[in-house]
Amino acid sequence: MKIKILVLTIFYFIGSFNLSYAANSEKVDQISKNLRCLICQGQSVYDSQSDFALSMKILIQNKIDEGKNDEQIYDFLKSKYGEWIVYDPEINKNTVLLWVLPLILFVFGGILILRKVSIK
């Protein structure tokens, strides 16, 4: 039971924190912040003024006007440009370690500490 609650709480937190992203109400901004500008050096589409980024923003705007939701837009972009374009890698067999490894380390470290302390 305890574990169930813990897991639920963790998922609740992971799912709900997107602080700096929530700050902007504009949907295009929100999506373009999560996209890499492919022709720039380490800039997001949102931050870049390159032709690529500008046309990308128009593309996103068009997709929103067509009534596509976030998921559909990301999927479309990923199929067109590859996984590389999104800053938020989804969990699949390639990235499962990326997401899980730090958590495993944390649990492992926690166990080590618990073994070194006495409760009484």
Binding site: K33, G82, I85, Y87
Partner: peptide, 8 residues
């Protein structure tokens, strides 16, 4: 190729 950015 994947990108790991701020959301991660």
């Amino acid at each position: 190729k994947i990108s790991v950015g701020p959301p991660f």
